[in-house]
Every structure is written in structure tokens, then in C-alpha cells.
Design a protein around this nucleic acid. Sequence first.
DNA 1: AAAATATCGCAACAATGTTGCGATTAAATA
DNA 2: TATTTAATCGCAACATTGTTGCGATATTTT
Lengths: 130, 130
Amino acid sequence: MKTTRNTTAKTAVLEVFEKSKTALSHTEIQKQLNGICDRVTIYRILDRLMNDDIIHKISNLDGTVKYAKCNHSHQRVHIHNHAHFSCENCHEITCLENVKPSYIMPHNYKVKEINFTLSGLCPNCLNSNI
Amino acid sequence: MKTTRNTTAKTAVLEVFEKSKTALSHTEIQKQLNGICDRVTIYRILDRLMNDDIIHKISNLDGTVKYAKCNHSHQRVHIHNHAHFSCENCHEITCLENVKPSYIMPHNYKVKEINFTLSGLCPNCLNSNI
DNA sequence: AAAATATCGCAACAATGTTGCGATTAAATA
DNA sequence: TATTTAATCGCAACATTGTTGCGATATTTT
Ligand SMILES: [Zn+2]
Ligand SMILES: [Zn+2]
Ligand SMILES: [Zn+2]
Ligand SMILES: [Zn+2]
């Protein structure tokens, strides 16, 4: 069966995601939780949330890993084929739900998942004349 | 000035890249070098090779980082906008030099770099009826 | 050959993620 | 509601990956 339970820690993590407009790293989540639970617990909660397709993982060019809530709007099959933007100035990572790359693959590859991350300057930082 | 020197360790690392058809992680390089130099030295060599645009870095969905030789064929401006394929079975990562995504960005973003990684089954593993 | 400096080895550290296990707690059942 | 049971937690310990400082070494220039 493997029923997943609603614990206080899990609820708290979900609230953090709810409040945030950008993707969050494990460390950022831990800071916001303010010692409500152990850091190992956060790792395990993130694993469960990913398994349940409630959040998805984003690994960035510089090696940092972040997580963001899934947008379940109108897809039957749950797949993350949208792009992510990583700002080199403020280091925020946001989902670009509407940006989906088109591409042509060579034969004999079976593509199951894609990871499309763009980096540069986000609108905020672009306007702040960096 | 910062002239870069040709040392035995650097030459050995380059030979490892030359022999390999797929991208390599720091650990994989270290194993092939067989104790020829310290692991810190390998990190520093990789940094230099990246600076000199001889290799490029690929960060994978699962957080692993690999490096591959650059293909300097016929571009004036040196940019890595090609895709990479990561096999979920054999974990090999290969450059797909000819696969370049097309996409439409929202306004107000300044894109400087892209990271397009596809994962699934590579031709080898696909034929081995996994 | 001597001087200048890029590179190296080593030790020490930091960040991130994983595992095992006994204690705790949510949820199902009686 | 009280009991059961299994998912979750906390803690300690460990693994991996990457970084930094510094004195020693090796390469390049003069
Ligand atoms: Zn920004
Ligand atoms: Zn996303
Ligand atoms: Zn494969
Ligand atoms: Zn490549």
C-alpha cells in the first residue's frame, strides 16, 4: 500500500512552497522552517513529495538543486517538459510553464524526460540596470 | 597574462578525454589517471580546461556533473547550445552536437546560456531490450 | 643558470546528501 | 475511545563532491 501520511513537518514544507513564487533549495527550505524538524526529515519529505508528483526537482548548471511545486492544471499525464530560468544575478529559479522546447532527435534514442534550463538575467535584475 | 602551462597531469587528463566517446565525471577521470596526480589537481585542471574552452561542463538531472571535450568545428563564437543525452540505464552522457532546441521566451528575460539535457535510453541500451 | 610564476600535493574544511536504527506519531481497526 | 501497525522522525555516523591555503615543485622566460 505505502500510504503517505500528513505530518506537521510535511504540512510546513508545503506551506513554504505555497508562499514562494520561485524554486527552493533544501537549505532555503530548512531556513524557513526554523528548526521545526531535522534536515534529514526535509530530505525525506522532498523525496515523498516528488514521488507523489507534488513537487519537481530542478538541477541547475552550477550544480545547485532546487524544487518547485507542480502545476497540475490541465494535463492528464504528469510530465515536466517546461523550461526553467535561472538568474545569474539574484540566483532565483523560476518555472517557465509556457516555454517548451521543440527539437529533432536522432533515431534510436528513447527520450523519457527533458531538462531545459536557461540562464541569464531575470526581468527584475534586467530592469535594475545590472 | 596568465599563461597556461602544459604539465604532465594536464596532458594525461586530455588523453583521457581523447579516448572517451562520452562525457566524464571527475571521479571517472580520477580512476583512469590511476593516481598520477592528486584529486585537487584534477579539479584545477578541469577549471583551466573550461576557461580555455577546451572542455565544457554538463550538469545532469540527478545532480551529477560531467565534462566533455568541445567540438570546435565551424563556429566562430564559442557557445554550447547543443543538447546532451543521459542514459538512465548505463548512465553514460553524450553530446548531441546536432540537437539544438528552438523555443520562444517571454519578454524581459535576457538569456545568456542554455542547458538542454534529455534522458531515457541510449541506442546501446535500447537494443539490449531493457 | 637564475628568476618569476604557474602548478602541485597535502591537509583541512564546507556543503550536500544518504543510511541505520530505536523512538515517535498518524491513521486504520477494533 | 483504546489498541494496533506501520509510516515518519531524530540523531549519529558516514559518503561524496568540491574548495581553500600554503609551502614545495616544475615550467617558462630572461
Ligand atoms: Zn534576477
Ligand atoms: Zn518547473
Ligand atoms: Zn545506455
Ligand atoms: Zn556537449
